[in-house]
Design a protein around this nucleic acid. Structure first.
Lengths: 107, 107
DNA sequence: TTTTCATATGAATGATATTTCATATGTTTT
DNA sequence: AAAACATATGAAATATCATTCATATGAAAA
């Protein structure tokens, strides 16, 4: 029961611990987008974007919906917005001095 | 300004994306502990626990305090409890079916 | 029904992070 | 000041994850 939570958290945070996936989530905050739109916005290959989208869907961090030949991805705001706001709060409150913390170019 | 947030989130979540560090945080929820106590609780080598404690301190996810030859580590509850509760909420609400999501033994 | 467009997927390569072991530092006790 | 204890740290070995490229699938347009 305790190990379960550790495992769950580990999967959860591993999913978030990737710059491409984070950038995807940030873009989807604004509005739902197709794979192509995301690839353009992130300046990344379509293949790479797709590779990162599927695990995000599996974890229900985002949702998909077919629209013709496109697939439109949208955010699970409840979880993701809450996460972002914790990060912002932490970095504002606990990492005010650059270079020694999460905030900016540390370690 | 946008790239900054991505970077910040990436560091933040990478810090959380490790089973040893998560287990440390979960143990510190109960009460502050020394390195040795943590090593015993996690059944891990002292060296490994130490290696994981320092980045957690740097990021201010935990705090240290000297007490004789020991060092007592304690949780930054504001940030960490909030995080855990998001994970619990997400896994309860969005991953009810085992095996396909974050919740349990999926991928 | 062939071509085109949007997206997905497998497998190899390359990059990063974790683990372990040996040893160093620093504090207290004798 | 030597011994003992608690913790930290460096570097090598290993494991894990991301990226890329080639190709597959599937829907719509011609």
């Amino acid at each position: 029961m305790k190990l379960e939570l550790t495992k769950t958290c580990y999967k959860f945070f591993s999913m978030m611990a990737n710059p491409t996936r984070i950038a995807v989530l940030e873009n989807l905050r604004r509005s739902p987008m197709s794979v192509k739109q995301l690839a353009e916005a992130l300046q990344q290959e379509q293949s790479m974007v797709s590779h990162n989208l599927s695990p995000l869907v599996r974890c229900r961090f985002i949702n998909v919906e077919r629209k013709g030949k496109k697939r439109i991805y949208s955010l699970n705001s409840e979880t993701i917005e809450a996460l972002f706001s914790i990060v912002e709060n932490h970095s504002r409150k606990y990492c005010p001095t650059m270079g020694h913390c999460i905030g900016r170019r540390g370690r």
